[in-house]
Design a protein around this nucleic acid. Structure first.
Lengths: 244, 244
DNA sequence: TCAAAAGTGTTCTTATTACACCCATGG
DNA sequence: CCATGGGTGTAATAAGAACACTTTTGA
């Protein structure tokens, strides 16, 4: 048998793709790395997993150092382990994605970073290591998740309008949706609670505010659902957004 | 900064949940471990990842040693890294699931095992390490996959009948389906090619044989689909199976 | 009173569900 | 000629797609 000691020479990290939604745009939180390799480069936040730490704990730690948030949506996506992915030796990384309410806190450069900043997902073109691949995998997972589980709510404030929810779906799915049909579909799921409150201070008819039903939320999170809606031909909302 | 050397003391393995389908039952391939820890216990096949080996390669190697098969369906599911999951030190494991045609080869006990055997998934109650948790995660993934991608074909022989396909769905989803509706749904997807051949030597009307369309297969594998069908009230096929 | 966005009615079409029934084969 | 699955027809209902229209607010 091979000497076991040969195997106990590798390390592993977690990398965290933190998504946020900002009115019209899907964002990802990047850090300017404070350590070699790739010091001072924008990259995904991540760090080595400590010897006494579980994977989920490590991912939560990285997230908390950066955002101050605990107990946010955090889910393992995929592990990347190409032989030469890290210049310091054999390092595999477990990728997580998390969803945060972008206004709920201030980003702080953590010990691992000299700076931290939200970037539009569509603008990110270049990242060190295999981080582009990781980002892509997490974005794909998010796209799939939003069609099958009520995760969209994690990106929105506690009270939101149907239009905000629709814009979120459109941003993530990268496709325009028809307003009437979107509303019918989402309301028929009984996932939303009508708060019987309205927006204030908008220069048009104020929209009704909704909350998600936590019980239905839990049920759908474990059972899954299917949210399928054909891309609309009328580019009604889309065009207006772009014309602003 | 923490001394990096502290981190390069861990190891990682792959574990492989190999599913097969045998007429009426979903099976998983277990090995009798040939090495400590848990020597001579039934467990999931797995092994350390070699220093010069990618993760997917390692999973493929474990699979090939055991089944002699290359190029079968193999997909990463989740990584398990609880601090004390392995008695020899910090070992995280990357779980894969694979789908094989159960009659396509003979199982051979590989170097890592003293024996290898198919077990009904529903009968597996007790496995070492966190292997029960891994099996459960992979089974859940399979359940989800069969509803969203054409992976069912990986478990069937190249030519199959619609009833065989339906039984496969019923076994994985653990629910009876209505024959007429199952057929309509699956045929409307244009995923099957009617071979215009029939079964031979059966004591009833011979069933037509089908093949999947490799082009449609590829398309659906990347795009995904939704296969939703309500559980039937009439337990037509089910009852008969159980009464035999 | 006008712009802007919220919100609703409705028709047409397609998909799903739930059954009942007929067909081909070997023993 | 009958037991055993294989295979189809179809009506009722539900869901989806596509549009046009009305409502409410601030400026």
């Amino acid at each position: 048998m091979t000497d076991l000691n040969n195997f106990f020479k590798s390390a592993f990290t977690v990398d965290n793709v933190i998504f946020g939604f900002d009115e019209a745009d899907l964002k990802v939180l990047l850090i300017k790395r404070g350590e070699e390799p790739y010091k001072d480069t924008w990259a995904l936040p991540g760090y080595f997993v400590y010897p006494n730490e579980n994977l989920d704990e490590a991912a939560g730690r990285v997230l908390e150092e950066l955002t101050g948030l605990r107990n946010v949506f955090l889910e393992q996506v995929k592990t990347f382990g190409a032989v030469n992915r890290h210049p310091f030796g054999r390092v595999i990384t477990v990728a997580y994605f998390s969803l945060v309410k972008i206004n709920a806190y201030n980003v702080q450069a953590a010990s691992i970073a000299s700076d931290a900043e939200w970037h539009s997902v569509s603008d990110v073109k270049d990242l060190p290591f295999d981080h582009m691949e990781i980002l892509q995998a997490c974005f794909n997972r998010l796209k799939w998740s939003i069609r099958t589980r009520p995760v969209g709510f994690e990106l929105l404030p506690p009270k939101f309008t149907l239009t905000e929810l629709q814009h979120l779906y459109e941003a993530i799915l990268e496709t325009p949706l028809e307003k009437r049909n979107f509303r019918k579909k989402i309301l028929s799921m009984n996932l939303l609670i009508d708060l019987e409150e309205s927006q204030e201070g908008v220069a048009h008819r104020p929209a009704r505010l909704y909350q998600f039903d936590p019980e239905k939320y839990r049920q759908f999170l474990s059972e899954g659902f299917i949210f399928e809606l054909k891309e609309t031909k009328k580019r009604d909302n889309r065009r207006k957004l772009q014309e602003v």
